[in-house]
């Protein structure tokens, strides 16, 4: 761990936080603005990965491995989500021949 720390610590922690926050916001914005289900999924992944970056940075700065363990779990969960999400989007495409979520207004009153 020690050696990795010195390497990562040559960059100020604020940079990591800012970058992650920026990426996260980008992801949030994407989810809110875009209408294509796959792009939204991609944006969600961007959010998750920005968190990974942040956790890895914190973990290095604190010299504590726990953060990286969570990174692993996040990766796994992200993969599971992608798997499920892609399956759902494939189902959506089969039913509606589109991956645009704005077609979804069937559920009303």
């Amino acid at each position: 761990m020690g050696e990795t720390n010195t390497f990562i610590q040559s960059v100020p922690l604020e940079y990591f936080i800012l970058l992650s926050t920026f990426l996260f916001s980008l992801g949030v914005l994407g989810v809110l603005v875009r209408r294509n289900a796959i792009v939204i999924l991609g944006c969600v992944e961007l959010m998750l990965n920005s968190v990974n970056l942040l956790l890895a940075a914190f973990s290095s700065y604190k010299g504590d491995g726990n953060g990286q363990i969570l990174v692993f779990f996040i990766m796994v969960v992200a993969a599971a989500e992608v798997a499920v999400g892609l399956a759902i989007i494939a189902m959506m495409y089969r039913n509606s021949k589109s991956v645009d979520i704005s077609i979804f207004n069937k559920l009303r009153g």
């Binding site: 959010m47 968190v51 942040l54 989500e81 989007i89």
Partner: peptide, 19 residues
């Protein structure tokens, strides 16, 4: 798909909070 996208979105917030 709504549940999935919203759920994943919320997960993102949760994780950012955790981080």
């Amino acid at each position: 798909i709504k549940y999935f996208l919203m759920g994943a979105f919320a997960t993102g917030f949760l994780l950012f909070g955790v981080a």
